[in-house]
Structure formats: C-alpha cells, structure tokens
Amino acid sequence: MHHELIIAGFGGQGIMFAGQLLTYTGMMEDRHVSYIPSYGPEMRGGTANCSVVISEKEIGSPIVTDPGILVTLNQPAFDKFAPTVKDGGLIIYNSTLINGELPGEDVETLAVPASKIADELGNPRITNMVMLGALIKKTQMVSLETILDSLEKVLPEHRHNLIPLNKQALEAGMEYTEDKL
C-alpha cells in the first residue's frame, strides 16, 4: 500500500488540520508517513494545500507532484491540482463549492456535498472532516477508530469537546460515500 495525496482548499477550511490528522492516523497504524504544508507568503491569502504520503515502505520523496488522490475543498484548488492527478487516480471534491468538470482524463471522481452536509450538522468548519470521512470510506486507507483515537491526541485538551462533532462529520462523510460505492 502506498498513497500519495494532496489536500487543497482555501485557508480557514482546516486543510492543514485534516492533513495532519490523516498523517497522524497513518503513524498510529504503523505505516510510514510524511506531511508537508505549503508555506510562505501565499498562506496569507488564497489557497492552502498539503502533501501527505502514507505507505507500507519507507518514504522517498515526501513531495507529491502527481498525486494518486486529490481531496479538494474549493474551486481554485480543484482547478490548480485536478490536472496533476495521476492517470487512474482519484479526485474527491466538495461538490457544494466545486463544479467538477475535468478536461476528460482517466481519473475517477467522487462528488461529496461536504459543505452542505457540514451546514446540516450545524457547523461549516467541519467540512474537512466530512471529506476525510468520504476519503477513508472510499479508499480504506485508515480506519475510523484510529482517526478517532488520533483526534484525541492531535486536538489540544481544551478542544476535546469538539470530538463528538468531528466524529459525526466523519460518519456523515462515510455514510454519504457508502451509497455511492
């Protein structure tokens, strides 16, 4: 098993958090993992993205240039990264905000109305977790149980009250995806 992902959206959508959580979960499941945030002045405005690698074997390049999986939360990030996805790869996109038209490549897509689902759960800030739920259902990359364990480790203590909400969002993303499989 070897997964190379890019997670992308705009600053404030919890892109970095989702990436770190996934990476941490991979580590908890005894995989080799690496995570790189985009950094620099571009963080001030616009898009945020990170590269995540989760693998059975030692990781060479931690930089992902042609991802096997793209998780994207807004249109500019979709436009920027969708063309870089490997042939045979997978794009999971937030269909509430993205019109997922591809220039006809050999790529599988999964549309998840994640912002809408998050709003229905009462908090737009958990859009990232809905997407993560969809990702793990679709790919079986890591298990829900380990993600929940990881949440406890990654979130600072005073944020632990948010765990049930995050769990709901993950499950909602998984449920939505179940129907599409």
């Binding site: 770190q20 990476t23 993992v33 931690p62």
Partner: peptide, 10 residues
C-alpha cells in the same frame, strides 16, 4: 533546508 524544517514525520 526549508523543506525538512517544515515537513512532519514520526
């Protein structure tokens, strides 16, 4: 370098 400085690994 900046890459190793910013990246996260176990």
């Amino acid at each position: 370098d900046g890459l190793l400085g910013q990246m996260m690994e176990p």
